[in-house]
């Protein structure tokens, strides 16, 4: 029973990593929006890099979600 409790606690702690991904995504999209408001004509050209940064940042959040799901269902 104690291992069961530790599993749930570990899954909850692993989900804290998604908060870090959220901070990173906020930084990325906020900076993109600030730059796009300064120079709207150059915003469309950087959209691919925005999506690339979004994917790389979100991947780390997905990894922590993966750890949480593994702890909940697969261990």
């Amino acid at each position: 029973m104690e291992a069961e409790a530790a599993k749930y606690i570990g899954a909850g702690i692993a989900c804290l990593g998604m908060g870090g991904a959220g901070i990173g995504l906020g930084t990325i999209f906020g900076n993109y929006l600030a730059g796009a408001l300064r120079n709207p004509s150059a915003a469309d050209g950087q959209f691919g890099r925005l999506i690339f940064g979004f994917a790389v940042t979100e991947a780390l959040g997905i990894f922590s979600l993966l750890v949480a799901l593994l702890l909940l269902y697969a261990v």
């Binding site: 999506i51 994917a55 991947a59 997905i62 979600l65 993966l66 799901l69 593994l70 269902y73 697969a74």
Partner: peptide, 23 residues
């Protein structure tokens, strides 16, 4: 564990591909 690991990463890649397609 391995099916969940592999398919979650594949699902992440499919989500990014969905975004790239819709934009």
């Amino acid at each position: 564990p391995w099916g969940l690991i592999v398919f979650l990463i594949l699902g992440f890649c499919a989500g990014v591909l969905n975004i790239l397609r819709s934009t």
